[in-house]
Design a protein around this nucleic acid. Structure first.
Lengths: 225, 225
DNA sequence: CGTTGCATTGAAATCCCTCAAGCGAGGTGG
DNA sequence: CCACCTCGCTTGAGGGATTTCAATGCAACG
């Protein structure tokens, strides 16, 4: 068990009145587990820590990050309500995970996962599917990082967020500009300037920094290449 | 079955004298399949084609690519002898695959894979592991594309190639500068200039364009951040 | 020996980054 | 209640790494 989970026992919330709770990991996969809450900025797990748990976001948002020796940071992904993260086959985490905002997270032991896979090939397939979807998302993101302009990256990000956290015509961003920059391989200034540019071009409106109205989805989609 | 496989029947080589050959997909996974040869530049499968086969490189090299609407290209990865590629869970390929040089490739039907997973949870786990390793490689590559300089990218690439295709102190590159550029998110000119720079700094030697001697691994590793 | 394809090199341009300042919302304490 | 601070965001000016455009080199091949 990682240090974080051990220390943070005050965060553990019993699930629905049972001592031993259940976690609905995917639509067809229900396993024993428990819930925890993490405050904004708090670490869920660290890079290179043993991957003894799998996590599912119940509310809030989580980012996975890797830090280079000189402090440069790359965010691997944002995980919103319903997303599973931290599923590693080979022992240790390769990114660290932190709460972007206060978050409620369900935990399932790796050992429980492994047992489920042993006896149920459908469960194994379901979990393999989670890894596979992660891979597909990463492939898209790789193209974005390798070949797209700042404008295209931000447009792509806004459309992705609006698909994942629908809020009518708008998007409510849980993360800071710095987070967005480190996710898109840009600087905070470039992200800010690009958003301002989009606002001048009437593609979006920015009532507040974290609340963005997508006025011209068509235009944004065109930018998405 | 995709068009490529159908059309290219002249390429099919019977395996070791049997009609129905076997393919050693991983060290513990032996499945029915057959071999094909692909000429330099030939397409193994196309983006969005149904993923009815899984592939293993026996000799040569393969690249997986995605092309944006305006022609920009991102190479997802290079697959060398022993590597498995084209393993998709969800129906269709999301990249196309082409032979970088003449390549001999083993094919296994998805249906055979699925059957193996049904009856053998160890096989399922082994295949899940392949996906998981792909994911890990992509995570590293994402950090490279998002946050590393041209010098760091090329150094990282050279070390990776020398680890995967060991050739003493040297590396024999099967791919062109254009391929390297599209893999590293750079231009061909930047790749060339960076290699020249490394040669001036006595970190590498370039007897020929595709044969590179790593004179200063320590120095390259330092660049790898 | 010309052609062809790939690689290298140079010069100029560009996109994004760096550095720096200003702005505004939210919280705290006097 | 307001001054003040902090933090995150925006904006500007200048610079730099990489791209773009263009020309040359070079090896393989017919």
């Amino acid at each position: 068990m990682q240090a974080t989970a051990l220390r943070a026992d005050t965060h553990i919330a019993p699930v629905a009145g049972h001592i031993g709770g259940r976690v609905q990991l995917t639509s067809t996969l229900d396993l024993p587990g428990f819930n925890m809450t993490f405050a904004r900025g708090e670490e869920v797990f660290g890079e290179e820590e043993p991957a003894d748990f799998v996590y599912k976001v119940l509310s809030g948002a989580v980012r996975t990050t890797r830090i280079l020796s000189d402090g440069r940071r790359q965010i691997g992904g944002f995980h919103l309500a319903g997303d599973v993260f931290g599923l590693e086959l080979n022992g240790a985490h390769r990114f660290s995970a932190e709460a972007v905002v206060d978050a409620e997270i369900a935990l399932v032991r790796r050992s429980a996962i492994d047992r489920a896979c042993e006896r149920d090939s459908a469960a194994a397939r379901e979990l393999w599917n989670l890894t596979s979807r992660d891979l597909e998302r990463l492939q898209d993101h790789m193209v974005l990082l390798g070949r797209k302009s700042a404008l295209e990256r931000v447009a792509s990000f806004l459309l992705d967020m609006s698909r994942r956290a629908p809020c009518g015509q708008a998007v409510d961003l849980p993360m800071s500009r710095t987070d967005i920059a480190d996710y898109l391989g840009l600087t905070i200034e470039t992200v800010s300037r690009t958003l301002s540019q989009m606002e001048r071009d009437h593609m979006i409106a920015l009532p507040t920094a974290r609340h963005i109205l997508l006025c011209d989805r068509r235009g944004l989609a065109n930018l998405d290449a």
